[in-house]
Design a protein around this nucleic acid. Structure first.
Lengths: 344, 344
DNA sequence: TTTATTTACGGAAACGGTTGCGTGACGAGA
DNA sequence: TCTCGTCACGCAACCGTTTCCGTAAATAAA
């Protein structure tokens, strides 16, 4: 354990604890020679102030929490990297909590954060979150929160998002322009605003091209990979199977690839695929995957920046600003236009 | 801020602070009816004990640190997930620190951890680490450490590793058995034991097949992606280019794919590729990538388990045990055997 | 010379929970 | 009736830092 503390420094220097404390914080109340003596000894003894004593006294922990559904996913991993970069630059520490898409875990985590362990929270909701009382309670404890990507519409807080509606529209339109007549949409937890926005973009794009929305073409996937596989398999095995698939998340696109391989469907000849995704290997897939790529790293940085802006102001000035970072459409082979006569 | 504390509970109940504290910790010294009254009110007032006060007094923070080079990488992401799962199951909190492969950052992080902020550290070295004084200092502060994957041989501490030597051997042998005559090895920071072990496996496999080690076939890559690309490009552009490449990390394999595409080299006909990798999309690549997959999630869980075993014992019983979790060879198309006459 | 002001530092009370020790009440055994 | 032990709880010190005061000495102003 770290045993060198202020008292020991003070004794050694024949100073009081308060003087040493002030000297280390470079207070103007302490003379330059005294400060120098303190600095020197602190360095020599490798003094590290006890963060818990400091936090207890100051009611500030210089720690933030990041609460996300998963980490084994390029989007969230990059977001964490952005957050950590900003946080450490500001001298803050980052606690990480994974909900595993389980609302019960999200509630447990939010409840434990009420203890004041962190100065602020950066969060992306889990898919099964409906009731948001646990988040309101956090808010009532005056713990600043910032949402990113999977934002909570019911809470007044800064939010960092992408243009999900437009991206959903663009993705669908891209499939239609590439020659698709029947476009399916694979979605996740519809309680998430990103899901409904992406879906609305999908629906509106269809309407724009005078196409009806076929409820059978909207597949609601969940956290059970095997179940998702079955649903996608069923979708693509059907007589009137779609000739284009718009996946709202990466893992569903991966499943589509597997199902197509299983069923002997060719991408893009038989089915075209587009997906929200931050896969680094999108361009190396067989065929390369057309993606809607979110600026994950920048979203993380932005979320952290917004949080620190609130933490550093005494009064809350920006309670509900939204930052919109646009996603990019990256066209690749999985949506390549195929001339009328199949060349195979 | 969280304002309900023990004193308020005590006042409300006409009890002393110490009695309330003991009741909440379910001490046998407190009568059942009193405990019940305390529990009820604590629940009603949504009491959350201040973790910093507790940590200060008990010299235990129930917090661990995870220090890794990067997170946007399936291996480390999965490891984090494993660690977080175990940690939260034990009621611990997880701080995350990214070194970005910069030894200066690793030193800064290690130094800040001397403050006693965490009860223990789980670590994977950054590639540029040579001097390990910062780690020794942590150790001298009696902060238990556990290494995983990129372990530090100079420090006596539990280590969770994979069979890097054997895997390097198997990977190389697999290329040779698939028909390769000139096998190159792409490696990273040779100061890392995993790198030298994998390389030794490579060298010994060549020797086993009566092949000389050609120094030009061992390419030392770094953190500069552009520079790596150039080196790989140079390797594969040469007159006597290799017909097989064993990449020690995932990102280098991805670069090989890009270079081959650029140079018009066919995988596996012209060049076969194998790599250490945890890519979920390995089987979907064009062509699918033969990998050595490490059990990342289990390694994270194991590292956390070892750490908690040390944290929960009063006396250190297992100072330097090593856990070896074997990697799996997953054969795919990038190393497919091609019959003598090219069919293209 | 006296008084006001600044400079440089010490004393001590917080912060909130934990824990060693002390103690009154009560029942049991002698 | 007296003693002893157990039960159930209170008192207060303690963890290490911060910060509100207070104050002696030195300097400036009157």
């Amino acid at each position: 354990m770290n045993s060198v503390n202020l008292k020991q420094l003070a004794q050694e220097l024949n100073l009081s604890v308060s003087t040493v404390s002030r000297a280390l914080r470079d207070s103007w109340e302490i003379s330059t020679p005294t400060k120098q003596r303190v600095f020197d000894l602190a360095k020599k003894m490798n003094f590290q102030p006890n963060p818990y004593a400091s936090s207890l006294r100051k009611h500030r922990s210089r720690t933030i929490a990041v609460v996300i559904p998963e980490v084994a996913n390029n989007f969230f991993a990059l977001a964490i990297k952005g957050i950590e970069t900003v946080a450490r630059g500001k001298g803050y520490h980052v606690l990480i909590y994974l909900t595993n898409e389980e609302v019960a875990e999200e509630v447990a985590i939010a409840t434990s954060l009420q203890s004041g362990r962190v100065d602020g929270v950066i969060m992306s909701l889990c898919g099964s979150t409906q009731d948001t009382r646990h988040l309101l309670e956090l808010q009532q404890r005056n713990i600043p929160m910032v949402f990113f990507d999977r934002v909570c519409e019911g809470i007044t807080a800064p939010k960092v998002m992408t243009n999900d509606y437009e991206s959903g529209f663009v993705a669908t339109e891209h499939l239609l322009k590439s020659g698709c007549k029947r476009v399916a949409h694979l979605t996740i937890a519809m309680s998430l605003s990103i899901s409904s926005k992406r879906q609305q973009g999908y629906i509106d794009a269809l309407r724009r091209y005078d196409l009806q929305t076929d409820r059978d073409l909207i597949v609601h996937c969940g956290n059970d990979d095997a179940a998702n596989y079955r649903m996608i398999n069923e979708l693509l095995s059907a007589e009137d199977r779609p000739d284009g698939v718009f996946a709202s998340v990466e893992k569903l696109a991966v499943q589509v690839y597997h199902v197509c391989r299983e069923l002997g469907l060719r991408i893009p000849e038989d089915v075209k695929v587009i997906s929200f995704s931050n896969l680094v290997t999108a361009s190396l897939l067989n065929p390369s995957l057309t993606t809607i790529a979110q600026p994950a790293y920048d979203m993380g940085k932005e979320a952290a920046t917004l949080l620190f802006r609130r933490l550093e102001k005494k009064y809350i000035v920006v309670p509900d600003d939204r930052v919109m970072l646009p996603a990019r459409l990256e066209v690749r082979d999985s949506t390549a236009f195929i001339s009328a006569v199949p060349c195979h």
